[in-house]
Design a protein around this nucleic acid. Structure first.
Lengths: 249, 249
DNA sequence: CGCCCTTTTGAACACTTTCAAATCCCGTGG
DNA sequence: CCACGGGATTTGAAAGTGTTCAAAAGGGCG
């Protein structure tokens, strides 16, 4: 019902983990990592696979080690809205609640670091480093959700696309150079349909607006999935936000 | 810059507090309450007053004791989207971050229980009962934000209005009777304009849809602000959600 | 009683959706 | 190596929903 493990890789050392310093375990010391090591298991899912369905029981919580996953809500009549876009180091599941509220889907191949629910709840209770990190991450997600609400509620289709691309560009570039004159490139981890579910649009509108941004030279497409942003400020100018941060004043 | 106290009421006992068992202090024992008492101050704001502006520094965090407040984001050109609707017991501010991301506005007369930022951060660090309660509350807010995202991204104007009224009805009725045959009544704490900012609509559309729901007998208006819901299921049927919870099967 | 702000209503318009069909792209198999 | 198949994407045209601009009606408070 709730798990479709494709493969297991047990015994991987937390010290070598690519998300060691960003995930829920970020603040842990060596002793605390040992506790987590004892209750963790890796699972992998392939692109397109559903990790859990809304309403199902999930006997674990997890950190997303690699890949991209989504949280999606579905209405009676099939209308769908994505409500979470999970990248490396993001947390899946809610302590003290075993039933899941949203469909969780792997949109690329995904590796999860899963913690058995019961013992993880004890860790939360006894390890302030973990619960405090989880609070930080949840507050960040809440901020992201609120930025997303502005996009959904008030932006035009073109602004929505530009905003989405800017968010991806920022997350992919990390803290590195987003200045003018530097080409930013990244892979789109979502289909046009998934983008439409993120942005509250139809996939046709997404396609049209992508074409529009390409036509206007704001983005270049290499194949269908690789995006090149020749001028990040130009992209920001399309988002409707305070793009240039008052550089003109 | 950041505070416009209208009046103070010092020395009020936490034991008598109306939000004692729902706010961030809910899990605290007597000793822990003493610590909070030492750093708290009450402030009141009158309807319409801005509590803090986005970007301002806030030297306190707070629990909303009574009244209704909103979090709102504003774009360059004046488009506005509400991203938080704060009712009694909700928490305002973010630990470890003194600058505020959204305009916080009192939409009715409001009383806050404010905690000085610095000492509150110590409480967070040293008092698991507080940090764990704050985590719970933040997770609840995140869930609410995600439900809201579905409303903004995928619902029609009529469904948005119905969903909003259903949310208010549920919060006001508390755990009590929402069954059929029981009239639910509540006061609208928001103007049409504030509703439009909540729902990503124009105020004209809000007004039209309210009229439509009234015309169809889904709601009754007593004055402009008091709403009567003669049949809660009928309202739910307008939300687009799985209204009757499978009662028909 | 009158003023002002909120709310309602009307009509034309704009943007996104819907429905339909063509095109592209990639993996597969001949 | 190239043709084929099928999902993903793009493009077109018509239709619909919500917005915009405008004006009237309603309500509360001095």
């Amino acid at each position: 019902m709730n798990d479709r493990p494709i493969s297991f890789r047990v015994g991987t050392d937390c010290a070598d983990c690519p998300i060691r310093h960003k995930a829920v375990c970020a603040h842990c010391d060596a002793d605390e990592l040992v506790r987590l090591e004892q209750i963790k298991t890796y699972r992998t899912y392939s692109a397109g696979e559903v990790i859990v369905w809304a309403g199902d029981e999930m006997d674990f919580v997890a950190s997303l080690v690699s890949g991209v996953a989504t949280l999606t809500q579905t209405m009676e009549d099939g209308r769908r809205q994505m409500v979470g876009l999970l990248l490396a180091s993001d947390f899946i599941g809610r302590p003290n609640r075993s039933s899941v509220s949203y469909d969780v889907t792997a949109t690329t191949d995904v590796t999860l670091c899963c913690f058995r629910r019961k013992p993880f709840q004890e860790v939360i209770t006894n390890t302030p480093h973990v619960s405090q990190r989880l609070l930080e991450m949840t507050l960040d997600e809440l901020d992201a959700a609120r930025e997303w609400m502005l996009i959904l509620g008030r932006k035009t289709a073109r602004e929505k696309i530009a905003s989405f691309l800017a968010i991806l560009a920022r997350r992919n570039a990390g803290a590195s150079d987003l200045g003018p004159g530097i080409d930013i490139q990244f892979e789109l981890p979502l289909t046009r349909e998934a983008m439409s579910e993120y942005l509250g649009l139809t996939l046709e509108t997404v396609s049209r607006q992508m074409s529009g941004l390409k036509r206007d030279g704001v983005i270049l497409l290499e194949g269908k999935r690789r995006i090149v942003v020749p001028d990040f400020d130009a992209l920001l100018n399309e988002t409707g936000d305070d793009a240039d941060g008052g550089m003109l004043a």
